Simulated scan of single mutants.
Amino acid sequence: MALRIVTADERLSRAANKTTLALFGPSGVGKTTQLKTLPAAETICIDLEAGLKSVQDWRGDSIPVRCFEDAIDIACLVGGVNPAADPTGFFSEGHYQHLAAAHPDLVRLITGKSIVFLDSITDLTRQAMAWAKNRPEAFSDKTGKPDTRGAYGLLAREVIGLLKHLQHAPGKTTIMVGILEKVTDEFGKVTWQPQMEGGKAARELPGIVDQVVTMALFSREGDAWRHDPERGTERRLVCRAGNSFGLPAKDRSGRLDETEPADLAALLRKINATSTSQG
């Protein structure tokens, strides 16, 4: 039986005190450069978009991923074995042992890291769609013709499964980066939405992660901040749901202000700070 009691000390230990965080922001706002705030020796970047030019002087390790099958394999090595997985499916004992035997260098590298930076979930869903379109589920059983609905359903299931697997990675903080796009409806109302293939994965992501933050440009307005995506010069992280800027955010820790400085390492320290008070 795998059931066990986790004590308060175990739950608050460094290994258990990990965070899953989704970081969204418009293209070019500087999401990837947040790598520079993280400890290079403890961080590994899963690079799905060949987008590390902006951090070419960053001294950490990265793994380039160009297809969804490779993304699944890397997620398996990061997250380990899912005891609930189909014995012949992704993230099973057989899947992990096969990869561990084939890539012992990756196992050693990943084992030594405590932070996984996935850049980006936008490109992950694009790779997943290209993969899903060629799977049997993406074709009609009756006509043999492509079935777009089947492809999107498969994409959603597998992407959500991959992200949930990363969520459970033992002892690892996982940061998932994604593009935020501005959407204007026919009435001129503006909303900001994660740019991902398939609506289901985008809708379910906030429920998977502990924290959702949006990186955006702001201008000072007295003692307050004004969201100013066109002319703002100050990058800030929007951290609370129901914020006055209408940007995606969620703070499960309850420790963050509405906006925080654009420093992921400082944000993680604030989220995971251990109380010194005695109960």
Score class of each variant (00 low, 15 high):
236 R>Q: 14
257 D>W: 06
266 A>R: 14
212 V>P: 01
206 P>H: 08
230 E>W: 06
263 D>Q: 11
262 A>E: 07
205 L>C: 07
239 C>L: 07
266 A>Y: 10
207 G>N: 12
255 R>Q: 12
237 L>N: 05
208 I>W: 07
230 E>T: 12
220 R>K: 15
263 D>G: 11
232 G>N: 10
271 I>L: 02
249 A>F: 00
248 P>N: 03
245 F>T: 00
207 G>L: 01
268 L>K: 03
224 A>Y: 12
246 G>R: 00
253 S>K: 11
265 A>N: 15
267 L>W: 06
218 F>R: 01
268 L>T: 10
213 V>L: 04
256 L>C: 06
232 G>P: 03
271 I>G: 00
232 G>A: 11
212 V>E: 04
269 R>C: 06
235 R>A: 11
208 I>K: 09
239 C>H: 05
260 E>V: 07
234 E>I: 15
269 R>Y: 07
221 E>D: 15
227 H>R: 02
260 E>Y: 10
263 D>R: 11
208 I>D: 05
249 A>P: 02
270 K>M: 08
212 V>I: 13
219 S>P: 05
223 D>K: 13
248 P>C: 01
230 E>R: 13
262 A>T: 12
239 C>I: 03
244 S>A: 14
242 G>N: 14
215 M>L: 15
228 D>E: 13
267 L>F: 06
207 G>I: 04
258 E>Y: 04
215 M>N: 05
223 D>S: 15
211 Q>W: 02
266 A>N: 09
259 T>P: 01
244 S>D: 13
228 D>N: 13
238 V>P: 04
218 F>D: 01
212 V>F: 03
258 E>V: 08
257 D>P: 07
227 H>K: 02
232 G>M: 06
205 L>T: 11
234 E>A: 12
222 G>F: 10
205 L>K: 03
244 S>P: 03
264 L>D: 09
263 D>I: 12
252 R>I: 00
220 R>W: 09
229 P>T: 09
228 D>F: 04
248 P>W: 00
210 D>M: 09
261 P>C: 12
246 G>N: 02
220 R>P: 09
